[in-house]
Simulated assay, not measured.
Amino acid sequence: MQTTDSSVALVNANYSGAIKHVDTNAKNDATLREQTDKFEAFFVKQILDIAINSEDNNENSLFPKDAGDKIYKSMYNDTMSNALSGKLGLSEMLFTYLKEGR
């Protein structure tokens, strides 16, 4: 009668399960980071909208009064908020808080 050593198969099964768990956590962390960065971008855009709109009464504003000034302001605020997202600390703070709550 021939015996088969299945210990290697069992060890591999255990390690592959651990690797899948680590990959899932890394994927979840990346998704969470992306969402917290998007929230920070939204938050910064809201602040920029208020700041840019408050200078409408100023004659030396960033965007002169013309037919497309609202479109330019919106595009500018979108670009700036996306560029600043993840760099102000709000995203990091929110990411850490939500990750601990899992």
Rank of each mutant, 00 (worst) to 15 (best):
S81I: 15
I71R: 08
N77T: 05
V44K: 00
G86A: 10
A30N: 13
Y76C: 06
V22H: 06
S61A: 12
K38D: 08
Y76W: 04
K27G: 13
A51D: 11
L90C: 07
M1V: 04
Q2Y: 12
T24L: 01
N82E: 07
G68E: 02
Q2K: 14
A9V: 13
T31L: 07
F95E: 10
E34F: 08
D66K: 05
F42K: 05
N58K: 12
F39C: 00
N77P: 10
K20R: 12
S54M: 04
M1G: 14
R33V: 02
K70Q: 09
N28H: 08
F95I: 14
N60K: 10
N53C: 07
E59F: 03
E34L: 08
H21P: 00
N53W: 04
R102Y: 04
V11N: 07
N82S: 15
F39V: 03
A9W: 07
G86P: 03
A26Y: 13
E55Y: 03
I50G: 02
E100L: 06
E55C: 02
S6I: 08
Q2G: 11
N57A: 09
L62G: 07
N25E: 09
T4A: 08
M80V: 15
E55A: 06
D56W: 00
N12F: 04
G68C: 03
N58R: 04
T36F: 01
G101K: 11
I50H: 06
D78P: 09
S85H: 06
A26E: 13
N53V: 05
K38Q: 10
V44R: 01
T24I: 05
D49C: 14
Y72H: 10
N25C: 09
N58A: 05
G68M: 09
S6R: 08
Y97E: 14
S61L: 00
V44G: 00
R33F: 12
K73E: 01
S74I: 08
N28C: 04
A83F: 12
L32H: 05
V8K: 09
M93W: 14
T96W: 00
D29Q: 13
K20G: 11
N53L: 04
A26T: 11
G101R: 09
L94W: 09
E34P: 12
S91R: 02
T3Y: 14
Y97T: 11
V22E: 06
M93L: 15
T24H: 00
K73P: 03
